[in-house]
Computed example of a mutant assay.
Amino acid sequence: MADKEYVLGNKARELLTYTNQATKIVTDDVSQRDVRKILQKIAALDDIRDVKQVCGQMIGYLDKKDKQGFTKAAYRCYGEDMRKTAKGIVRDIHAANGKYFDTEYEERLRLIGKILDGCNLMLEYIQICLDMGTISLEKSKVWTKKVLDVKYMSAKWKKNDGARAKKLEDEKRAEEAARQVAVVKTAISQYNEDRRRVRPT
């Protein structure tokens, strides 16, 4: 893998790892372990006033718990697809880099286009999740930066390879034109030679 594509591959893996972490499902429900701890603490108290105080503290703690994150419904609607998209970006970078440019540049450019499409979709999903309050502004900034790192590097890759592909296409067209001219010249030469042979003396 070329140096730039190696860096791009690393950036894409970072994006995938962050996406998997950021789309973990959270729930507002109290876990059985939390309930067990609360009941054990209350059971150990003798004075009703202490029970009320502990209950008040626990309610405050639960109210302050961060409610941001993907619910099961949000995960099914957006999070799951975001993970698949991030995984597809990693896959397509490696697939594009594995194409031999001189003979497979069209497929390589198509795959780079898929990478860019994936990045654009990720940015759209991040904005939707921010608007819904599923993620914080801070998390959206970090996530967006990771997507843009991949997008800008991929766009530069496509631009450079596009210029190389155009050069190859121009060379092919020039070779084909030269070949056609040679065929026509050969045909004319053969025609003139045949006429000389059949010309009456």
Rank of each mutant, 00 (worst) to 15 (best):
A2T: 09
D3Y: 13
Y6V: 10
V7E: 15
L8F: 03
R13V: 08
R13Q: 14
E14Q: 14
L15C: 04
Y18L: 10
Y18D: 02
N20W: 05
N20Q: 15
Q21M: 09
Q21T: 07
T23V: 06
T23R: 10
K24Y: 00
I25S: 06
T27G: 12
D28R: 15
D29T: 14
Q32A: 15
R33H: 07
V35G: 01
K37V: 09
L39I: 12
L39D: 07
K41E: 12
A43K: 12
A44L: 08
L45M: 08
I48W: 08
R49I: 07
D50T: 06
K52Q: 15
V54D: 06
C55W: 03
Q57S: 13
M58A: 09
Y61E: 06
L62F: 13
D63K: 15
K64Y: 04
K64F: 03
D66M: 05
D66I: 02
K67S: 13
G69R: 06
G69M: 03
T71Y: 05
Y75L: 06
G79M: 02
E80D: 14
D81R: 15
V90Q: 00
V90Y: 02
V90S: 01
V90P: 01
D92I: 03
I93C: 05
A95L: 13
A95M: 11
G98V: 00
F101G: 08
D102F: 11
E104M: 07
E104W: 02
R110K: 14
G113Q: 09
C119Q: 04
C119T: 11
N120L: 14
N120E: 15
E124I: 03
I128R: 11
I128H: 04
C129V: 07
L130T: 06
D131V: 09
M132F: 09
S136Q: 05
E138D: 10
K141M: 14
W143P: 00
W143I: 00
T144H: 14
K146G: 00
K146T: 00
K146F: 02
V147K: 08
L148F: 05
D149F: 04
V150S: 07
K151M: 08
M153N: 12
S154E: 02
A155R: 10
A155H: 07
K156W: 01
K156S: 11
K158P: 00
K159T: 13
K159W: 11
N160Y: 07
D161K: 05
G162E: 06
K166G: 01
K166V: 02
K166Q: 10
K166S: 08
K167G: 01
E169V: 14
D170G: 01
E175I: 09
A177G: 03
A177D: 11
A178S: 10
A182H: 09
A182Q: 14
A182P: 04
A187W: 00
I188R: 12
S189Y: 11
Q190N: 12
Y191C: 08
Y191F: 10
N192A: 13
N192G: 00
E193A: 15
E193V: 03
D194R: 15
